[in-house]
């Protein structure tokens, strides 16, 4: 398995990571984002340095997806600033599409292009955005398909694959673009339980190969073993941050404790949970 991790590193060997020496890959400063009256991000500060894996957890509706979408400029923010490799990307006049080329994102719904075979899903961006010759793009894509364990699927259409396979294709599709950071938004939440592992393994190996990642997830085991840092978000704010094992085992904030207790994976048994008056599991 370690071998595979090095494989991904090799596939991304020509990464110009050196120029980001010291500067965080992503830095957010006091992001505020609301939809109408609904304040979704309420002063978020965040920093991810090269090669780091930041795991973000938090209850549903706390703004995790919105945070990733803001970083990828899919959502405009009301105030605050976001820097990517030292350059402010939230200021006017920034070429949004050029920024996005360097930020990979994988969604909960795999969002593969249904009319294209796996190979074309992988190479579309490289060929049409980066103007990479087809042969080169396909070579790169084949490498990545091997890394995500799907070398024999290049001729398949997305609907012919299982959810776990589609999600691995989606990860490979983002990687073909040679992103400098990868954002993962609950990428295993739509999967049958027995398919979760194959996707997490790919992400683990990617993290080990030195990719910078922000991972929104409910998989506490993954957070603990792969995350360099863990952030707990609630109601648009960062409540607690630290080494994953510390936050998970010895949460300092009451809100974190409550969330972790409710999260079934952290409860030792279903017997320990009851429904509170607010209708929540405690």
């Amino acid at each position: 398995m370690q071998e595979r991790g090095e494989g991904i590193a090799a596939a991304l060997a020509d990464e110009p990571g050196a120029k980001t020496n010291g500067t965080p890959v992503v830095r957010a400063e006091q992001i505020h984002k609301s939809f109408g009256d609904n304040v979704v991000l309420d002063g978020i500060d965040l920093e991810v340095s090269t090669g780091e894996t930041l795991v973000v957890i938090g209850p549903s509706g706390s703004g995790k997806s919105t945070l990733l979408r803001c970083i990828n400029l899919l959502e405009p923010i009301q105030s605050g600033r976001i820097f990517f490799e030292g350059e402010e990307i939230t200021k006017k006049g920034v070429r949004v599409d050029q920024v996005r080329q360097r930020i990979g994102i994988v969604f909960q719904q795999f969002n593969l292009f249904p009319h294209l075979r796996v190979m074309d899903n992988l190479t579309l961006g490289a060929r049409r955005v980066k103007k990479m010759p087809r042969r080169e793009a396909e070579e790169r894509a084949r490498d990545l398909l091997v890394r995500v364990g799907l070398p024999e699927k290049e001729r398949s259409y997305p609907h012919q694959l299982s959810g776990g396979q589609q999600q691995r294709v989606a990860i490979a599709r983002a990687l073909v673009m040679q992103p400098h950071v990868m954002l993962f938004d609950e990428v295993t939440s739509a999967l049958d339980p027995e398919l979760v592992g194959e996707v997490l393994v790919v992400m683990r190996d990617l993290a080990r190969s030195g990719m910078t990642m922000i991972v929104v997830t409910h998989e506490m085991q993954f957070a603990r073993e792969v995350g360099d840092r863990l952030t707990f978000m609630d109601e648009g704010k960062i409540v607690e941050q630290g080494i994953p094992a510390d936050v998970l085992d010895r949460p300092k904030q009451e809100r974190t404790r409550k969330f972790l207790r409710r999260s079934l994976q952290m409860a030792h048994s279903l017997e320990e949970l009851t429904i509170t008056q607010e209708g929540e599991a405690e």
Binding site: Q109, N111, H115, L124, A174
Partner: peptide
């Protein structure tokens, strides 16, 4: 969400139309 997958790859809105919405 499919259009956003196109945008996320770095396609401009017009190229997202040509490469995703149109086909």
């Amino acid at each position: 969400r499919l259009r956003e997958a196109g945008l996320a790859l770095g396609f401009s809105p017009f190229k997202t139309f040509l490469n995703v919405t149109l086909p």
